[in-house]
Write a protein that binds this DNA or RNA. Structure first.
Length: 348
DNA sequence: CGGTGACCTTTCG
DNA sequence: CGAAAGGTCACC
């Protein structure tokens, strides 16, 4: 079977960035082909994605011939939902660039950062794992959750794929101890306890929060063990359609201070400052402020420095090492910033 | 409310 | 060997 495809510019969706910027922790890129592979909720198969200059190509792998009857149109709809393709990202970028000079600078080198519309349960447990943690380890933990408690789907290209576990399974006796042994640390308890809370709620309780107003959904999420303001905002933004939810983590905290000169506390991120930072970006970017936040967050990320440089080289045909003129200016701006920011400024 | 320290584990400087 | 990694919670 050949690949299906739909037309898509990288300014609407840049797969490499969107699937690896810390929204979802389950996509893996094949080193050889460059294609992305994962499972999506609701379909017991492996999704394969890759991108050309003007299209996204997709293909499904199913356990048996019989079950591979997920038709092209159905698959297409699943992808359109997952990638929020009803939202015109190019228009939003234009809007945000006009509203904010800093965004204009950052986004010029990092287009196509699109918010995914993920499964709420998967997003909830994934981001409980995210506290005080790094993306690589989070990805490993999410993988362990699936392998240990998910449903086996199939093996493809030497890798075994599993569904994300349902809360009922994670609520079972002994899960906390097991997860601790698997290296989840203190998050083991949060996962187990939150699973028990979910299991006690009416079916579909979490998914229903998609219909609730942002503040209400956020408040409900805060009742779950291991879910604070930041994790709740991640769940709101990435799975509950709250496009103006702004997760304020250490990165956004630094960005707010460094690039937006917000008066933030030095030591700890208090509730007051947390809300002020979010409100600042909401006022600046409007209805889809959470999406804009994701661009700034990704642009600040070290792992995307090289990808940006490559892109810059190709598009402007200019070398990046030749700007000693700006060096002093860069140093002067470095009062609070780190080397990552210095590198970033150097290629402007 | 604001501030503080503990919490698991791994990696990085 | 301490700090940081997409924080949260309990307690003062």
């Amino acid at each position: 079977m050949s690949w299906w495809q739909f037309p898509c510019r990288k300014t609407q969706l840049w797969l490499d960035v969107t699937l690896s910027c810390g929204q979802s922790f389950r996509w893996r890129q094949d080193a050889g082909s460059g294609e992305w592979r994962s499972c999506l909720p609701g379909s017991l198969c492996v999704w394969r994605l890759k991108q050309t200059v003007d299209a996204v190509l997709y293909k499904l792998e199913s356990p048996s011939e019989k079950e591979s009857i997920l038709l092209e149109e159905s698959a297409r709809q699943t992808l359109f939902d997952y990638f929020n393709f009803d939202v015109d990202l190019e228009s939003l970028y234009t809007e945000w660039q006009r509203a904010d000079r800093n965004f204009a600078e950052q986004s010029a080198r990092l287009k196509g950062v699109r918010m995914l519309r993920q499964d709420p349960t998967e997003t909830l447990f994934s981001f409980i794992c995210s506290s005080n943690n790094n993306i690589e380890r989070i990805s490993g933990m999410v993988e362990k959750l699936c392998v240990t408690y998910g449903e086996y789907i199939l093996e493809f290209d030497g890798r075994q794929y599993y569904t994300f576990p349902v809360p009922h399974v994670l609520a079972a006796e002994g899960v906390e101890d097991k997860l601790r042994k698997l290296g989840f640390g203190y998050r083991a308890k949060y996962i187990h306890q939150t699973a028990k809370v979910l299991a006690s709620k009416p079916d579909g309780w979490l998914d229903e929060l998609r219909k609730a107003p942002y503040r209400e959904a956020h408040a409900e999420l805060l009742t779950l063990p291991g879910v604070g303001a930041k994790v709740a905002d991640c769940i709101c933004l990435m799975s509950l359609d709250k496009m103006d939810a702004i997760p304020v983590d250490t990165h956004m905290w630094q960005i707010a201070a460094r690039d937006y000169k917000l008066k933030v506390t030095n030591k700890s991120l208090t509730t007051k400052v947390y809300n002020e930072i979010g409100d600042h970006f909401r006022k600046l970017f409007g209805q889809y402020a959470g999406w804009a936040h994701s661009v700034l967050f990704s642009a600040d990320f070290k792992k995307f420095q090289s990808i940006q440089v490559e892109r810059n080289k190709i598009e402007s045909n200019v070398h990046v090492e030749d700007s000693p003129v700006h060096q002093e200016e860069v140093e002067a701006n470095l009062v609070t910033s780190k080397s990552a920011a210095a590198k970033r400024k150097r290629i402007i």
